[in-house]
Design a protein around this nucleic acid. Structure first.
Ligand SMILES: [Zn+2]
Ligand SMILES: [Zn+2]
Lengths: 349, 349
DNA sequence: TTACAAGTTT
DNA sequence: AAACTTGTAA
């Protein structure tokens, strides 16, 4: 429990997923089969997979006497607490077709079957800490209703419902950490994951979340907005910190994010009209550039902290930072520095 | 088994439906609750309910040695057979918000939870006949796949899944006849209903169908087109006649029917443009009419058979026929003739 | 009845 | 990515 390697991820080859090349794949997609494509992309979250491969159910679990939380969720308010509990999401994961993050709305849009690679940090390097993750309905009047999977996604003949522990079946999300507990308190479901201190050189602990139902599902979440609430707990279940994040599991993260952001700016405006003029701006020729480079390669690493106005600009800066380092890596053959720097690019909440 | 009264319908008060006035009704509508409103309208299919009320599961069922059909469905072709097997739908039920019939497409659009009041006729007045009803996928490549309810609609805690026989749970439709068998042959589901000869004065036998899933349901029909196949069977399960009807269980029968008919006429045309100009025709002032009536009331009944060009015209003629008789009924107080004549208005397939 | 939401198809 | 479908809400 002292080293990074106990934060294990599910090895792909141990999940009973049909091959994407299976000719029945399309045919079996009867509306509630999962899109496994992300889980078949060899490099999808490669950097999170430690070298060591462990069985899905570990023989020596990290034990807590009780998985009960001392104070069930009554508020969503952020509470860093005495350990300055924080979470983040690697920026290079934030603007993909399968996972979009809206900085304006502080909201994650993610497709079912895909990975939300969260990072968590707290200021103590000693003691046993746990992460509890609970999905709740965002609206006050739904807050006490348990968030559970729909009937269709709980069907036991679905491939991703086989070879799982019975306690996982109703959970909308599962973690990538095989040592997580799947807890149920009066129908309110949560996961409880041991938080080991970050490995040397990293300042936070990665924990993946995978989603097995959608926000739109009838008999389940049924189109209601949801949040994931992360609490830092002590070994005895005392709440030491709390952070929450709005999450929507949907089929078109990009579209839905753009729609929501547009609604925020233009309430009650005719959406279809607005979008058209936004998505089809008049073409502007790119400015001429001098791409000649005569600068010596500099081996030093400079820490940079800056605020950028506007998400597009923000993303552009990030992309540029990544690309310029990629150019460096290609020229020098030093891909290590690229890997390290790009992992440092986190989106903090 | 010799009289009309053995074609019983489910008495409303014996179905375990929540009251429409229940304050939880709206709240419980989590996407897969049924719209019970039709079943609460006192007069909805009043005329089909015989005076005698029978328990939902009859104590003395009409027995067939085996519910197996000698020749399972391999074709959808119409086959009147030696008994001239026919079916029809009362026209006054054909153009409602809950049930639309497209004469162009020979297709029924019906909301879940609502009644399709079919009528069946055959030319023999002696012997024991049975109606088998099977729902199949319209497309050849899906024909052999069983049509069953989705997981969400099979949930046992839904009110309309309680107090039913286990054999009914997977069936997309149920009949209004309590003596129907619910058969399963390798997953292919069908109902088998005793066909008693029509009562004196009627020329066909009414059988209601109620729907408990939708064509759009994931893990169920999943947006595939379906047909209901009706076969006339002998006491030994020999097929004596066959008729089929395209049925789509959906939330907006009128809209979907109009869309389909529009698609038929304007294949690949921009639908949204077309519909707008169709649904908002330029206003035309109605022609002046002389509504003075100086004709003596005629007590004779005249049989009429005619073909009308165009569905709107066809409906207009039917409505006019109904209304003119209604006027007669109001003037004379003879509502019997109205009832009898309007029931004669059937839409034959 | 219209507009919207959100999954699926092209 | 755009268009279409189809359930739901206003
Ligand atoms: Zn679901
Ligand atoms: Zn269904």
């Amino acid at each position: 429990m002292e080293n990074y390697n106990s934060n294990f991820y599910i090895p792909h080859n141990q999940i009973d997923f049909p091959s994407i090349d299976d000719p029945f794949y399309k045919y079996q997609n009867n509306g509630y089969m999962m899109d496994y494509s992300s889980l078949h992309q060899q490099n999808f979250h490669k950097k999170y997979i430690p070298n060591q491969v462990t069985p899905y159910w570990p023989k020596e679990p990290i034990i807590r006497k009780s998985s009960v939380c001392q104070t069930p969720i009554v508020t969503l308010d952020d509470y860093p607490g005495e350990f300055n509990f924080q979470f983040s999401l690697p920026v290079n994961e934030c603007f993909r077709t399968n996972l979009m993050y809206s900085k304006k709305l502080l909201k994650v849009y993610i497709k079912m079957g895909h990975v939300l690679p969260m990072r968590f940090s707290w200021s103590s390097f000693h003691g046993d800490f746990w992460l509890r993750t609970t999905m709740v309905f965002r609206e006050d009047h739904d807050r006490s209703i348990p968030v559970q999977r729909c009937y269709a996604h709980m069907a036991s003949d679905l491939p991703y419902n086989q070879n799982i522990n019975a306690s996982q079946l109703q959970h909308v999300f599962r973690t990538g950490n095989v040592r997580s507990y799947y807890h149920c308190n009066n129908g309110i479901l949560s996961t409880l994951t041991p938080l080991n201190n970050p490995v040397v050189g990293l300042k936070d602990v990665p924990i993946d979340f995978l989603f097995y139902c959608k926000n739109s599902c009838p008999t389940g979440i049924n189109r209601r907005p949801t949040m994931m609430v992360f609490t830092l707990e002590s070994q005895t279940g005392q709440v030491l910190g709390r952070r929450s994040l709005q999450v929507q599991i949907c089929s078109c993260p990009k579209r839905d994010k753009e729609r929501d952001e547009n609604d925020l700016q233009n309430p009650k405006a005719k959406r279809s009209q607005e979008k058209k003029s936004v998505s089809n701006p008049p073409p502007v020729p790119p400015p001429e550039e001098d791409t000649e480079s005569s600068i010596e390669e500099d081996q030093n690493v400079y820490s940079l902290k800056l605020d950028v106005l506007g998400e597009e600009n923000y993303k552009a800066v990030l992309k540029y930072a990544y690309d310029i380092m990629a150019g460096y890596a290609v020229r020098t053959g030093n891909f290590e520095i690229l890997k390290k720097c790009s992992e440092e690019l986190h989106l903090c909440f």
